[in-house]
Write a protein that binds this DNA or RNA. Structure first.
Lengths: 121, 121
DNA sequence: ATTGAAAATGACAACCATTTCCATTTTTGC
DNA sequence: GCAAAAATGGAAATGGTTGTCATTTTCAAT
């Protein structure tokens, strides 16, 4: 399990954030990389087990992955036109960590989105 | 949309925590309630839109639902066993509002979840 | 009470991300 | 070089969820 892992990790770097297995498969296909969808799924599972990759769930239940240790950000999304702004989340990181600690949780992560109506709408 | 909503809410009360749509359908069937699985799904969606019910995702992507408390809160969820703690989100409210203001957004809302591994797991 | 339009219902089929199966290919240890 | 083990990927299966649509129920107007 190595060629595939390398390819998948490269794809994750290229997208630079969260991506679903299917998206990663497409990215690799577009880059002339020959890799099966099954292998992408299997490789992602291995990487998650190795804790090289984080797995999350979108609202619709689809799994999305990202490289561990990526400094991550949040999104401010316009409900009307979809315009998106990237937001730093220092405050929220601390809040999540503190809340987890106080309740005896470990390996704490979080998701957060802000939405509203942008000035153009 | 009322008979079904009542039944689904009763089922949610009976289980007293998180339950999947399929589980709720079974509960209702066991109680001689005649209701279709499709209607259970549709009713749950309506209840989620009304903010009467919370929806979360298990690790395997299956949706689970439960009655929503009245106050706005967030969840600290164990990735392993699903144990859930309700968290006050004062810090995050301010962060969301501030981020939105700074970027000219109005009608600002947000979603946030914290997850980790609880002390029992 | 009767009617008729609009909403709700549910059996069934479609959908789609994910997993399983299995035959083939590649890698590895000797 | 060679056999055993691991990896690969196409096809089929799985399973939760959603879409379809004909039928039933609700309910206000008559």
């Amino acid at each position: 399990m190595s060629k595939s892992a390398t390819k998948v990790l490269q794809a994750l770097e290229r997208v630079g954030g969260f991506a679903s297995a299917q998206e990663l498969h497409l990215v690799l296909k577009r880059n002339q990389e020959s890799i099966g969808l099954t292998t992408v799924y299997r490789t992602l599972q291995n990487l998650v087990n190795d804790k090289s990759v984080d797995i999350l769930r979108k609202d619709d239940g689809e799994a999305i992955y990202r490289l561990c240790g990526d400094s991550h950000h949040h999104h401010l999304v316009c409900k009307n036109c979809g315009k998106t702004v990237e937001i730093e989340g220092g405050a929220i990181e601390k809040w999540a960590q503190k809340s987890g600690d106080e309740n005896g949780f470990r390996e704490i992560g979080h998701t957060a989105e802000i939405f509203g109506i942008c000035s153009d709408c």
